[in-house]
Structure formats: structure tokens, C-alpha cells
């Protein structure tokens, strides 16, 4: 089961942004930036669970939901990896170190990292989808012996679009079998070319002891989940992170309604078995 959605227990109003200061800014790709934020208010920097998101408020422009991409062990900061695709997210990407942002959350359900010992993990990320999974990867690295086989399969558009590339050697050295494939590559690329499912044939999946976590474009997750089902995985052992345009983030406004679920409250992390009938429908 994905972890239940977060509701603040300290009496604070989840609709009121808290002030955070940007303490580090790192450019990942030409369109993507990672910001590290620390609380600048009375409430300490909030704890989070892998997979959860916050509402980041660029003052005067608006709010957008952004997944947390950092380590749960760093209690002094929250990291967000943001792709600048709209007015707010582009503004966030350009905000300098030292500037203030408003933050609500963290909200939503988490990846099922906790669980029985020696489970195999299959982490499948496409594009910016690696960001919400990096927190899982960090937790696995901290408790590597707790898990069985652990794979990280990464798909990206081009070599220049790969996120966190400088971290892959460390992940591999710690026993995470990290593999990368690109949609398109120049002649100098030595790795794999093809969609992320093209990495599956050479990955050993042991049904009933594997949990898969998928994050990326919905089409990618749907095909990846189907390929994993073909390998014998139960749809309830496959988790996906859904992206919708959240507004209130606490299940009031209905903006992110997806069938019977509010993605902000019931998701973003959900078992594929709960969604698979909806993922093939248009305009849901």
C-alpha cells in the first residue's frame, strides 16, 4: 500500500504558505533546475516522505505542485527539481539563491519504500520522472542491505536531458543496478537507445517479491506497467505517480480529480491496479 496522504498534525493551516529561503540552486539541464529550500519562518523545515509534493508559490505569479527530490535524511532542507515549462515554473527556475518562496505541504501519498525485507525493487523513471524517485533511491542507498535486487531504469529524450547524471556512478557502486536508455543519441553515445521498456528483457523480475515504482509521462507508465505485467508482476505490486494540475492540494477543490480519486489527496502515488482501467481513457 502507498502511504496515506499527509495532513499537518501541528494545527497549521495547509492553505497558508510558509516562508522558505532558497539556499542552493543547481542547474541540471537546460530546462531543469534543482532548488534547495530551508524554512525561514517559525516552523522548522518540514519532514517528508519519498513521493510527496509541495505547492511552491512564486510571489505574485502563482503556485505549482512540485515533487520533492531530495533526501529524507536532510532535515534542514527540502529539494525540488523543477522543469521550466510554464510561467510559474520558469520563474521558479530563475529565482536566485537567497530569495524567498512560499511553500505549502508536503502533501500526498508516498512510495512504498518500507515493507518486508529482501524485496526486489524496480525503479523506472522517464524524463523529469526521475526527480520524485530520487528520494526513494536515497532511502534505498541508506538501507541497501534491507532490499534484494534493486534496479533503476532511466529513460530520457537525449543525453543532454539526463537528470542527476553525476550521481549514477555512486548509485551503481552502492549496488543499485542503474541503466539508462535514450530516445535519440548521437554517434558518440555508448549506451542503450530505445524506450525505457527496451531495458526490461535483460532485467530479472521475480514476481511476488518485486515492487515496481514508475514515474514519467502517463503513456510511458502505461506501457511500462503492461510490460511488467507480462513479466508476471501483479498490478498491485506496481506503483505509479500521477501528475495533475493540483490547486488546493488537500482534496477540496476537485481540480485534480481523476475518476474517483483526487490526485493531491489520494495520490500522487497509487497502485497501478487501481488506475489501469482509467489510464486508457481519454480526457479523464
Amino acid at each position: 500500500m502507498a502511504v496515506e496522504g499527509f495532513v499537518p498534525q501541528d494545527g497549521s493551516d495547509p492553505m497558508v504558505p510558509e516562508p522558505y529561503r532558497i539556499v542552493e540552486r543547481r542547474r541540471e539541464t537546460s530546462h531543469t533546475v534543482t532548488l534547495a529550500l530551508s524554512s525561514a519562518g517559525e516552523v522548522p523545515t518540514r519532514a517528508f516522505q519519498p513521493g510527496q509534493f509541495s505547492m511552491l508559490y512564486a510571489f505574485g505569479l502563482g503556485e505549482v505542485p512540485i515533487s520533492i527530490s531530495g533526501s529524507t535524511a536532510r532535515r534542514d532542507r527540502l529539494e525540488y527539481t523543477i522543469r521550466g515549462v510554464g510561467a510559474v515554473s520558469k520563474a521558479l527556475c530563475e529565482t536566485p539563491v537567497g530569495a524567498m518562496l512560499g511553500v505549502r505541504g508536503p502533501f500526498g501519498t508516498a512510495w512504498p519504500v518500507a515493507g518486508p525485507e529482501n524485496r526486489d525493487l524496480l525503479i523506472v523513471a522517464g524524463g523529469i520522472g526521475l526527480a520524485p524517485l530520487r528520494s526513494v533511491i536515497y532511502q534505498v542507498l541508506e538501507r541497501r542491505s534491507h532490499f534484494g535486487n534493486a534496479f533503476v531504469l532511466i529513460g530520457a529524450r537525449t543525453e543532454a536531458d539526463l537528470l542527476f547524471r553525476d550521481e549514477y556512478p555512486r548509485w551503481r557502486a552502492a549496488g543499485l543496478d542503474t541503466r539508462v536508455t535514450l530516445d535519440a543519441a548521437s554517434g558518440s553515445w555508448k549506451g542503450s537507445v530505445g524506450v525505457v521498456t527496451s531495458l526490461f528483457p535483460n532485467v530479472e523480475v521475480r514476481p511476488n517479491r518485486t515492487v515496481a515504482m514508475l514515474c514519467g509521462p502517463e503513456v510511458m507508465m502505461r506501457f511500462a506497467a503492461q510490460a511488467l505485467r507480462d513479466k508476471g508482476l501483479s498490478p498491485h505490486d506496481i506503483y505509479v505517480s500521477m501528475e495533475r494540475n493540483m490547486k488546493c492540494a488537500v482534496g477540496f477543490c476537485g481540480r485534480c480529480q481523476y475518476g474517483a480519486d483526487f490526485i493531491c489527496r489520494d495520490g500522487p502515488v497509487l497502485p497501478f491496479g487501481r488506475l489501469e482501467d482509467r489510464l486508457v481513457l481519454q480526457e479523464v
Binding site: 505542485p65 510554464g86 515554473s89 529524450r157 530516445d183 530505445g194 527496451s198
Partner: peptide, 21 residues
């Protein structure tokens, strides 16, 4: 068939820029 699926999926350019906020 597998290669064709692969090419068709890549033609979708699923990692391209989405509508953003």
C-alpha cells in the same frame, strides 16, 4: 513488432515539453 512499438512510442516524444504551470 517490438522494434516497431519502440519507434512508435518514441515518435510520441513523451518527454517533450508538456503544457506547464
Amino acid at each position: 513488432g517490438r522494434r516497431l512499438d519502440d519507434v512508435q512510442l518514441r515518435l510520441l516524444d513523451v518527454y517533450g515539453e508538456p503544457d506547464g504551470g
